[in-house]
Design a protein around this nucleic acid. Structure first.
Lengths: 164, 164
DNA sequence: TATTGTTATACTCTATAACTATA
DNA sequence: TATAGTTATAGAGTATAACAATA
């Protein structure tokens, strides 16, 4: 391999969106069999997972938190409701479509977590639990940073100067 | 917000595939306008970007490196070839479909890079260039770690013991 | 016989705009 | 008037299996 090609490869590795995509692909592939086993798509799973950690959520919150566009979410609601995994929740704002897990939905969630736990521990040990925490923190902070780029009033002064 | 909900939120933040997806979503949104401007989809752009850093690549390599399944790649080849952005390359193994950028393809690539560079620098400065490098390194290393999980012979002894 | 890639097929997601209902 | 969500629609990606061509 030539010097130029080595440099080129490093540049490709350093593309942030692509690196995030590739890393997500391999980690998703590790856990996807446990999702497939319950006839769930990854977006459907993200909805169940988000609902498992809240009493109830509206469509907009789920859309943002699970990275699913509203039209897709409408279909996912229909699917998961018909399968008895989620149910509508009364809300004082009639525009909002709030949903929560049913008992069956929670059971499915708990099953997937239990079945995949061994692989998660295997991954955490192989990578190093502390490095995994560091990575997760960096991901969250990068997300916050990028979101603040669109809203410069929230930016700390130092960063504003450096970015300019 | 209750104690339980705070804990729940943290758990959702700590899902690796979801965190990777959400971070990719915001970073992609930052750069996507520059891709859209040239009537490219993100997968098409990944192909151009990979080819820009190699003389020529075959479909299998591109499929892995760009996270695109072979059937999608076939369609993308057809699209980019018809637009004159890539061209087939002769190869000693006639099974392989090798392609390379045309001059037009390279021009489009350079244009996108030039147009988006200011935003990339803005992001790197806001997040911290060194932290960005750390994040990119961790992403690459995590990818390697997960891939080795499927191929335990490659695992260092210490990790094998800890994982077992 | 194994590998590379294409085709076929069905389903899902992506993305935008237009529309309804509610605040 | 602004917001939340649904519907409609077109296009692209996801995923699998079956197939053809080549090694």
């Amino acid at each position: 391999m030539t010097q130029t090609q080595q440099h080129a490869l490093r540049k490709f590795e350093k593309s942030l969106p692509i690196s995030l995509l590739r890393t997500r692909e391999v980690t998703t592939r590790l856990f996807k069999p446990y999702i497939d086993r319950h006839d769930l798509t990854m977006p459907q799973w993200r909805v169940l997972r988000a609902l498992a950690e809240a009493d109830a959520l509206d469509a907009k919150t789920l859309s943002e938190r699970c990275v699913i566009l509203p039209p897709s979410l409408t279909r996912i609601f229909r699917n998961l409701t018909s399968r008895g995994l989620i149910r509508p929740i009364d809300c004082n704002d009639a525009r909002r479509h709030m949903v929560a897990l049913t008992d069956d939905g929670r059971a499915v969630f708990e099953q997937v977590v239990a079945e995949s736990e061994a692989d998660y521990i295997r991954l955490a040990n192989a990578f190093g639990p502390k490095r995994l925490d560091l990575l997760l923190d960096l991901l969250t902070e990068l997300r916050d940073t990028v979101q603040r780029l669109d809203d410069p009033d929230d930016m700390p002064q130092l960063v504003k100067v450096r970015a300019g």
